[in-house]
Design a binder for these strands. Structure first.
Lengths: 113, 113
DNA sequence: TAATCATACAACCGGTTGGTTGTATGTAAA
DNA sequence: TTTACATACAACCAACCGGTTGTATGATTA
């Protein structure tokens, strides 16, 4: 039922679990860059960079738009928001439960003192 | 120079790029659970769950405290905050550059009309 | 001490990942 | 049309990942 959500989260976290890909997302935020513009600044083959972009594309973090012979990659902010809200939820659960336990402890203290 | 930061980010994103591990983080948020308590609810071997906990531990997302013969896993909220601020930064860069481009376009429009 | 329970860890296996090189295709410029 | 450039994609390889089973260690209980 929520498997699709999990699939998306898997893809997003995995896509961001590589420093080259995180760097690409940073660099194409806003204006967008062609794959070869991107590739020029990494110490790896063009094909490797192209595969990184493909991973980001599959995760929905970037989209490509053809302009002449170049293919321009753009970052998509939506998935970043998705992943942030997932983490916020995790953190909220943490805070919530800690608070609940603190309340219990406070109650015990009062009762025990 | 910033390799350590990247190492941490690699470890955090990779640790969260597995649904079982995300579930474990949720479940040990606040109170904490022993490794076998955790393992009881997954359709995999004890050793597999133990390895997942170890990955989370290496990433700093979980710490263990021995209580009798049991080893209690607790979630750490710090790394979650770290990862959230990384994403916030990414998103800010996005918003910033889009804004800058919007400003340019607005200027062009005014000049061109 | 012996038996048991909770954990740790090593060795192994199939699938995936991050890189390579080579080749094919599509677009632009001579 | 040829030539050159930007991209795509397949095949290959070593390393890593997520799982397994089996064995060893540590703490608790009989």
């Amino acid at each position: 039922m929520k498997g699709l959500l999990d699939d998306e989260a898997d893809a997003l976290f995995q896509a961001l679990a590589d420093r080259t890909r995180r760097d690409i997302v940073r660099r194409v935020a806003g204006e967008g860059l062609s794959v070869s513009d991107l590739a020029a600044d990494y110490d790896m083959s063009f094909a490797a960079v192209q595969k990184h972009v493909a991973v980001l594309e599959r995760a929905g973090l970037v989209t490509k738009r053809r302009v002449g012979k170049r293919q321009i990659a753009h970052a998509e902010v939506g998935p970043l928001r998705t992943i942030r809200s997932m983490l916020a939820e995790l953190e909220d659960q943490w805070v919530e439960r800690v608070q609940r336990i603190d309340d219990l402890l406070a109650g015990d203290e009062q009762a025990g003192s």
